[in-house]
C-alpha cells in the first residue's frame, strides 16, 4: 500500500508539472510568430521577447522529461527488451534506474548546486541589453529537472519491484 502510494505521489508530481509546461509549446510558437510579424511588419523588436522563447523552450523539455520517462516515451534500443518477459523488463528498469538514472541526477544536483545558488544570490539577469532578468530561474531548471527525474526514477523502481513481487506471488 505504502509502496503504491509513494509511487503514485512521485508520478503525480511529474505529471502535474508536465501538464502545465506543455502549454509553453503553444505560447512559444505564438511568441515566435509575433516576433517575426513585429519585426518584418512593423520594424519593432524587443530582446526580452526574443529571449522569452528560449525560456519557454527550456521549461518544456526540462520539466516534461520526467513525465515522458514515466510514460515510457524515451527511446530504448529494445531489440531484446521488447521480447523479454515483464519480470526481465522489471529487472532492467531497476538496474538502469539505480546504476544510471540516480547517479546521473545526483551528480547533476551535486555539481549544479553552488552554480545555481550563486545565480540566485545575484538574481542573475541577461547578458544581453534589454534581456530578461531571469537567468537564475533558467538555471534552476537544471536541478529541478534532476529532482523530477529522480522522483520518476523512484516510482519506476517501486513499480518494477511491485510487479516482480506480484509475479513471484502468482508463481508460488
Amino acid at each position: 500500500m505504502v509502496v503504491a502510494t509513494t509511487a503514485t505521489i512521485c508520478e503525480k508530481v511529474c505529471s502535474v508539472s508536465a501538464k502545465i509546461v506543455c502549454w509553453a509549446v503553444l505560447t512559444m510558437a505564438l511568441t515566435t510568430f509575433v516576433v517575426v510579424v513585429l519585426r518584418y511588419g512593423f520594424n519593432l523588436g524587443w530582446v526580452a521577447l526574443q529571449e522569452s522563447i528560449q525560456y519557454q523552450h527550456a521549461f518544456v523539455f526540462m520539466l516534461f522529461a520526467a513525465h515522458a520517462l514515466g510514460q515510457d516515451e524515451h527511446v530504448r534500443v529494445d531489440i531484446f527488451y521488447r521480447h523479454w518477459s515483464g519480470k526481465q523488463q522489471a529487472w532492467v528498469n531497476i538496474f538502469g534506474t539505480i546504476a544510471f538514472l540516480f547517479p546521473v541526477c545526483m551528480s547533476i544536483v551535486f555539481y549544479s548546486w553552488s552554480y545555481v545558488l550563486e545565480s540566485w544570490r545575484l538574481l542573475e539577469g541577461s547578458k544581453e541589453a534589454g534581456g530578461l532578468p531571469l537567468v537564475f530561474v533558467m538555471k534552476s531548471l537544471i536541478p529541478a529537472f534532476a529532482v523530477l527525474m529522480m522522483l520518476q526514477g523512484i516510482a519506476i523502481v517501486l513499480r518494477a519491484m511491485q510487479s516482480l513481487l506480484n509475479t513471484t506471488e502468482r508463481a508460488t
Partner: peptide
C-alpha cells in the same frame, strides 16, 4: 534591423533601431 549586442544595442534602440540577437 541590426545585430548589435551590449550597450551599443541599447543605444541603437534609443535612436529607433531594432537590435536583433
Amino acid at each position: 534591423k541590426m545585430r548589435i549586442p551590449g550597450l551599443g544595442g541599447e543605444v541603437f534602440k534609443e535612436v529607433g533601431g531594432v537590435p536583433v540577437t
